[in-house]
Design a protein around this nucleic acid. Structure first.
Length: 620
RNA sequence: GCCGGUGUAGCUCAGUGGUAGAGCACUCGAUUCGUAAUCGAGCGGUCGUGAGUUCAAAUCUCAUCACCGGCUCCA
């Protein structure tokens, strides 16, 4: 495994130098582009976690060949070691210059800078015109010292707040690379013009660049789409349509293990399990508000005997209906109902991505109906269950976010305060640090989101816990309180995996397809050295299968070396060689992916060993 | 949905207007083999789909679908 170079993204306090480097590199990119392709308009060019990008407006998009030439020009600018000089400018003067240059986006940026903020620009080069000034006041020049300086060869400037390096030569020409071209909307707004974005990466040393590129390769090696095909776990087929997942036998075996584990964990944690339909009368979705607020993600309705029916994008209304099926006493609460509920959501074609973003997926959904004073305890319980489940799947590091009341929301101040306090109380009781996302909650209630960190330091959003004041209201849910009055229960939505499909994808990437024994689709493969041992191997396989192991025999008739190679490529954790010796001695020659050869073991010894490893949920 | 790219055998990929190829996989035969590839033969493709240009299209044009990299959105 490579060490992660991405764990601490640069920020102004932790990596001032890297920030300047990246920001300046973006400017050098823009300068190179405008030198080579002068008709290109500049917009913005910020730094990112791994480098920088710059958005340009031009008629013809950049080609890969353009990118190569731009990179060469950037190297030239870097090697020329041009000075970078900040100038504080007068607003009207710079406006005139920008207008003269014909840079509409820069003008828009200028106009959006508050009146009381100073306006600065950064020159790169321009040595002829700036020379005297540079000596007088290194890297900073006052307003009015320059007027109407045309840009030209080795003279370029951009309206920018900085900060920047002092010379382009401070960029190591072997520590940067342009990466890709992509479309991006002006100001991130899809109703605004689409620009051409060039992504680049830059580091302080070539070694850091290399580490980053290695990390990128590592991510590519772990890509669940690639591994999913190689290991024959799942497919998404053009004939069926995008975003629809086919779980192949090996993927299905794993899903079964995951689901069995999930069901047991939930039953143990005091949940009941539900099964609900995949479609329902549209009126239900009108009552829930989804038809009004979530319609763009819903598939079209279908007509069934003059009634409109809807494929479900959510499970919650079904659980509410189940609750409504009879009257509830306060003594029954909290009610915890969980379901592996398959939902269908319309996603725009461009956003589909392997198992991570699909159109049909199964949520590990649950709803808790409880009294206001039970909310904190229930949330705490959910946090515990979440930690238990995620850590059993190998995820022990989390980032936790608490999202509070947004501007537009339903519910009284009192109930929002109660719910938010309950979430905070639960997080504190759990002892988890969290980041507060002020106003980031849903319109119907506050929430906690949990991101898990995988083996190479990437974060994935899975679990979410949301308090909901809206649905109980809309469905007029109630319970009978101790005094005989009808009261409204509080509803908590929560998912731990989020979606089985996405979680499976994350598992594949986290383990790079090398699954721990308890999850591996094939746990053991028996390899007969020659045809004479096939029957013996088959008999042993049958025994193992009866004990619940996922086991196969290699019937290829290939030589042992080839059988081992095949098993290794399929990332099978345990292979057991059966030759003449093993038949005579009633043993197996065991070899594991993680630890190499374990030597001769009896069938019983192998089972004991595997059982131990399975219980630990670790690799063998 | 938008911008750019890609689509040839089950998989990975050659093939730039003139008879569709390789390796692996698969099937068959020979070999009966001891810890990451035994040898040989065979099977396999209306070149994503549909129009068009041309005497002739995998190759050029247009449309469409899917995928890839992003944007926007999100479990």
């Amino acid at each position: 495994m490579v060490s992660s170079v991405l764990q601490s993204p640069p920020n102004p306090t932790s990596a001032e130098m890297l920030l300047r480097l990246r920001h300046t590199c973006a400017h050098v990119l823009a300068m190179a582009v405008q030198t080579l392709l002068p008709e290109t308009k500049v917009t913005i060019g910020p730094w990112t976690d791994t480098g920088f990008y710059y958005d340009f407006d031009r008629q013809t998009p950049f080609t890969p060949d353009d990118l190569t030439q731009i990179e060469t020009e950037m190297r030239r600018i870097i090697n020329a070691n041009l000075p970078i000089i900040q100038e504080v400018v007068d607003r009207e003067q710079i406006r005139a210059e920008i207008e003269q240059l014909g840079e509409p986006y820069k003008l828009e940026i200028l106009n959006s800078i508050p009146a009381d903020e100073p306006i600065t620009r950064y020159f790169i080069g321009c040595a002829d015109t700036l020379q005297g000034v540079v000596e007088a006041s290194l890297f900073h020049i006052a307003a009015d010292t320059l007027t109407q300086k045309p840009m030209g060869k080795d003279c370029w400037w951009d309206l920018c707040a900085g900060p920047h390096l002092n010379y382009t030569g401070e960029i190591n020409p072997d520590a940067f690379a342009l990466e890709s071209v992509a479309g991006a909307y002006w100001r991130g707004d899809e109703t605004k013009p689409q620009l051409q974005r060039i992504y680049g990466t830059v580091w302080e040393t070539p070694e850091q660049l290399q580490a980053y590129l290695t990390q990128k390769e590592e991510a590519k090696r772990r890509d669940h789409r690639k591994l999913g095909q190689e290991l024959d776990l799942f497919s998404i087929q053009e004939d069926a349509g995008g975003g629809l997942v086919f779980w192949h036998p090996k993927g299905a075996r794993m899903r079964l293990v995951i689901e069995d584990y999930w069901r047991k964990a939930h039953l143990d944690a005091g949940y009941e399990l539900l099964y609900t339909p995949h479609i329902a009368n549209l009126d239900l979705w009108k009552t829930s508000g989804h038809f009004e607020f979530y319609r763009e993600n819903m598939f079209d309705q279908m007509e069934i005997e003059t009634q409109q029916y809807q494929l479900k994008p959510m499970n919650c209304p079904f659980h509410v209906l189940t609750y409504q099926s009879h009257l509830h006493s306060y003594r029954e609460l909290p009610i915890r109902w969980a379901e592996l509920g398959t939902v269908y959501r319309y996603e725009r074609s461009g956003v589909l991505h392997g198992l991570m973003r699909v159109r049909g997926f199964t949520q590990d959904d649950a709803h808790i109906f409880c009294l206001p004073e039970q909310v904190a305890d229930e949330i705490w319980g959910v946090l515990n269950l979440t930690e238990q489940i995620l850590s059993d799947f190998g995820f022990t590091e989390y980032e936790v976010y608490l999202s509070t009341r947004p501007g537009k929301s339903v519910g009284t101040d009192a109930i929002w305060e109660l719910a938010t306090d309950a979430l905070v109380q639960a997080l504190d009781a759990k002892g988890w640090n969290y980041v507060t996302d002020e106003g980031g909650g849903a319109f119907y209630g506050p929430k906690i989101d949990i991101k898990i960190k995988d083996a190479i330091g990437r974060l994935w959003q899975c679990s979410t816990i949301q308090v909901d004041f809206n649905l109980p209201e809309r469905f007029d849910m109630d319970y009978v309180a101790a005094d005989g009055s009808r009261q409204r229960p509080i509803m908590i939505h929560r998912a731990i995996f989020g979606s089985l499909e996405r979680f499976f994808g994350i598992l594949i990437e986290n383990y790079a397809g090398d699954f721990p024994l308890w999850l591996a689709p094939v746990q053991v493969r028996l390899l007969p050295v020659s045809d004479e041992q096939r029957d013996h191997a088959t008999a042993i396989a049958l025994q193992l299968k009866q004990f619940g192991y996922r086991v196969e025999v290699d019937h290829s008739g290939e030589r042992l070396g080839k059988q081992i190679r095949t098993a290794e490529l399929e990332k099978i954790p345990v292979v057991a060689v059966v030759g003449k010796r093993e038949v005579v001695n009633q043993t197996l020659s065991v070899r594991t992916r993680q630890s190499g050869e374990l030597g001769s073991l009896t069938l019983l010894e192998l089972q004991e060993k595997m059982q131990q490893v399975i219980m630990s949920r670790h690799p063998i």
